[in-house]
């Protein structure tokens, strides 16, 4: 199902349209929200925020406009997550340094070179992980990006936790040799 089909369904039958929208993009929105709320909110907060993003998209997105639905969801997710994080900070009376608050809205002007290097490293690392192939790359991402245990990863990937552990061990060994050259440790 492509974007146009989903838009058409959203126009014709809101319920079916939302189901299609959700099935296609919930994981995408969740990941973006998670990357921003990690360390701030619980998994429940991430779920709440993702639900808000998707319901907002459903209610506010103009299906007649010729804009990318996926890009719209990505941007909505990011903004909503930043708002969510800010409101949580307010509730918990946490002092937010100005840099942290603007972290997701403004690029650092002082250290563009460092940011670019960091982007490069993360992109290269992701490519190296992807090269491991499935399900090893998924296992590594679940562990190091989503901070999931073997049991949780096993549930998501439909595997045995012991298999997940052993595959993780082997995948990390493979990755270790590659990453040593990049000065990255496990």
């Amino acid at each position: 199902m492509n974007e146009n089909d989903i838009k058409r369904m959203m126009k014709e039958s809101p319920e079916e349209g939302f189901r299609a929208l959700f099935d296609e993009y919930w994981s995408y929105a969740y990941t973006i929200v998670y990357s921003i709320l990690r360390g701030y909110g619980s998994r429940n907060d991430v779920e709440d925020c993702t639900a808000e993003v998707l319901s907002d998209v459903m209610m506010k997105y103009d299906v007649l406009r010729d804009t990318s639905l996926k890009a719209y969801i990505g941007t909505s997710a990011k903004r909503r997550a930043i708002d969510f994080r800010r409101s949580m900070d307010l509730h918990t009376s946490r002092n937010i340094p100005l840099e942290a608050e603007t972290e997701y809205t403004l690029a650092s002007g002082d250290d563009i070179e460092a940011d670019a290097e960091s982007s490069d490293i993360s992109a290269i690392l992701l490519r190296k992980i992807e090269k491991l192939g499935e399900p090893d790359s998924s296992i590594i991402i679940q562990k190091y990006f989503y901070d999931r245990s073997s049991a949780e990863t096993a549930r998501i990937l439909g595997m045995n936790p012991i298999t997940v552990r052993s595959r993780l061990r082997r995948a990390l060994k493979k990755l270790k040799t590659v990453l040593t050259d990049m000065d990255i440790t496990l």
Partner: peptide, 17 residues
Amino acid sequence: ADDKTVRRIADSYTAAD
């Protein structure tokens, strides 16, 4: 990770069960 990498991860991997 930067935005681009996060979106690539979001695109390629299942986020939850």
